[in-house]
Amino acid sequence: MLAAFAVMVSLALPHGAAAQSSPPSQAGTIVSGSVPPDGGFGLIVYGGGTYSQLVTASGCPAARAVFWVTQGGTFLVYVPTTAVGAVNAGFQAAFPNDSIPANTALIGRCTPAAESGIDGLVTVGPSCGPVAMPQQGGALLPCPDKPYQATLVFLDSQGREQARVTTGTDGRYRVTLAAGRYTVLPLNPPGQQFPRASTTEATVTSGSFTTVNVSYDSGIRTAQ
Score class of each variant (00 low, 15 high):
Val31Met: 10
Asp217Leu: 00
Val35Arg: 04
Leu76Ser: 01
Phe154Glu: 01
Asp119Val: 07
Ala197Ser: 13
Gly108Cys: 07
Ala62Glu: 10
Arg109Cys: 08
Gly207Cys: 08
Ala197His: 04
Gly48Ala: 12
Ser206Thr: 14
Gln224Pro: 03
Ala94Glu: 03
Ala12Ser: 05
Gly120Ser: 13
Asp145Gly: 06
Gly48Val: 13
Gln136Arg: 13
Asp217Ala: 10
Gln224Trp: 05
Gln149Phe: 05
Thr203Arg: 14
Ile44Gln: 05
Gln192Trp: 02
Gln135Phe: 13
Gly90Val: 02
Arg109Trp: 10
Ala83His: 13
Gly171Phe: 01
Gly85Lys: 00
Ala105Gln: 03
Gln162Arg: 07
Arg64Tyr: 14
Ala113Glu: 15
Val9Arg: 06
Tyr148Met: 11
Gln71Tyr: 06
Asp119Asn: 15
Met8Pro: 06
Ile44Ala: 09
Thr205Ile: 11
Phe194His: 04
Ala223Ile: 14
Pro195Arg: 08
Glu161Pro: 01
Pro126Gln: 02
Gly207Met: 12
Pro134Gly: 08
Tyr148Glu: 11
Val7Ala: 06
Gly180Arg: 00
Pro80Gln: 06
Asp38Gly: 10
Ala3His: 12
Ala93Glu: 04
Val45Ala: 15
Pro144Asp: 09
Val69His: 05
Gln92Trp: 02
Phe209Asn: 11
Ala179Ser: 14
Gly28Phe: 13
Val87Trp: 12
Leu141Ile: 07
Ala223Met: 14
Ser22Trp: 05
Pro130Thr: 14
Ser157Met: 11
Gly73Val: 03
Thr211Cys: 04
Gly117Val: 00
Thr169Asn: 05
Val153Gly: 02
Leu152Trp: 01
Cys143Asn: 02
Val31Tyr: 11
Gly28Ala: 10
Ser215Cys: 00
Ala86Phe: 10
Gly120Tyr: 04
Leu155Arg: 12
Ile30Ser: 07
Val184Leu: 01
Val69Asn: 00
Gly129Trp: 04
Asn103Arg: 14
Gln136Leu: 14
Phe41Gly: 00
Val77Pro: 01
Gly168His: 08
Thr203Ser: 14
Val131Thr: 14
Thr166Gly: 09
Thr222Lys: 01
Ala102Glu: 11
Phe154Gln: 01
Arg109Tyr: 09
Arg164Phe: 02
Ser22Gln: 03
